[in-house]
Design a protein around this nucleic acid. Structure first.
Lengths: 257, 257
DNA sequence: CTAAAGTCTAGATACCATGTAAAGAACTGA
DNA sequence: TCAGTTCTTTACATGGTATCTAGACTTTAG
């Protein structure tokens, strides 16, 4: 079976048969615990974290599991390990910030989360309008339909916001897919991470009404009409509004580093 | 010390003290061998690759080292492992194509390399003009100087093309840096990977003269003058030319899948 | 006396060898 | 078709040895 975490990873993104590439058992648990600790500065940058035997005991797993977990974190650029050097937290500039886990391991109140939120939105303002334009030219009929479906699912009469989140993800991810550019698709997990967080904090909803629901519709219709120029323009407007809202929200909420 | 591979990873990108996050010993060797095999379709997608004991023997390392190597590949989305299921190659759509290793493990003649080349260029045509615009607004004096330096190092009287490659990397990477957006920086390794390959194939040089050297200069000067609009425009022109050249080159060279 | 360079050693991960547990694929029988 | 069984394979545990290097220490040069 799939692990419970996949609740946050809708089916349309992860066909069951492909499974997950990451550890699923005790190692997964260890990865998350250590990842969260590191992301939230519990271990100072540049300093050694506890040794393998110490972590093994404190996490209640074997040395092997700790090693495996640390290897995953290495793969995300968060730590460096070497003989005698120990395992040390690398500078944040080396972290793989396009990795969904690295983003989502941060506490919502962490200053870096605000920064990542703003930066990811800036990146989206660049990528997604262009993606919408390409999608208008290249989307398959099924993709167009999926985008329209997602738009209509953004109705405010949805009971809980998780449905809005799911629809929003489907909207943006399908557009990225529809570019036909496999590299662009790689940004989907990160975008979903950020979206999830913004929904949790209510940034994306305004008294239950999804922010810029009309914007989504305009983009979708432009893609349907294969009008790349309008799709790009409307996506730009939508994200720009998003950006202002988010920026104001987060700037009030937290201070910068 | 650093391993020889770091020849392809110039100092300006990787301050020595940060070291590498990836394995450096026999595991690194195993990762590369397996990674290249998978990237070049030596193991069919969806089918189990040899078991841990078999790989351990054929690679001449212990089972542990094989496990570690496979874990790295899992982290890049290339394989999935499970009990009794074995280790199987995941669909290419799941691979982390923004990872520099995943790109560079492909043989230069692999059809997917052509596809990645075209797709990465498409992505760059979106990202880099916007990055240049932001860089024009935000670049520090040091960064402006670095960009100008890199431009002047693109002189055609450079003896070997590796110097051109290095300068080209410095140019594009510094501009991404200068956006101040940490997420945008994450694209640097992938871009460098693609650049390296295109230099190896001579796509970027025309009888020793770097393609669009004048374009680089125009972008650099615009950034110096803090003229975002011109920087963006010139970067667009430069990459668009790049795209046409590369596309024609690769389409003649290989067939698509 | 001070600072730079060389040496040594403790302490950490890298790797190895082996074993047990567990989970899913494939088979089996109704 | 479906439920149960088996068996293969990785997941995880245990306990080592090898190797590298940060940091302490020593030596030397100025």
């Amino acid at each position: 079976m799939q692990d419970k975490d996949d609740a946050t990873r809708p089916d349309f993104l992860l066909p069951r048969e492909f499974g997950t590439a990451l550890p699923t058992g005790v190692v997964k648990n260890a990865v998350e615990k250590l990842g969260r600790r590191i992301a939230n500065d519990e271990y100072p940058e540049g300093e050694p974290i506890p040794t393998e035997p110490e972590l093994a005991e404190s996490l209640g797993v074997s040395k092997t599991a700790v090693r495996d977990a640390i290897k995953v974190l290495s793969g995300k650029g968060m730590v460096r390990t070497a003989r005698r050097y120990g395992t040390r937290v690398r500078p944040i500039s080396e972290w793989h910030l396009l990795d969904a886990d690295v983003v989502s391991w941060h506490d919502a109140t962490h200053p870096r989360m605000a920064q990542m939120f703003i930066e990811s939105t800036e990146l989206r303002c660049i990528i997604e309008p262009a993606a919408a334009e390409l999608a208008a030219e290249r989307a398959t009929p099924e993709q167009v339909e999926a985008i329209l479906d997602a738009t209509s699912a953004l109705r405010p009469d949805a009971v809980d916001s998780s449905l809005l989140y799911e629809a929003d993800c489907r909207f943006h991810c399908t557009i990225l897919d529809a570019t036909g550019n496999q590299m662009m698709r790689q940004l989907r997990p990160m975008i979903m991470s950020v979206l999830r967080i913004s929904y949790e904090f209510g940034v994306q909803t305004d008294r239950g009404e999804p922010v810029s629901r009309k914007g989504h519709l305009l983009v979708a219709k432009a893609i349907q009409k294969k009008d790349g120029t309008v799709a790009k323009l409307e996506m730009e407007k939508m994200l720009e509004a998003n950006r202002r809202t988010a920026r104001a929200y987060w700037e009030n909420k937290t201070k910068f580093t």
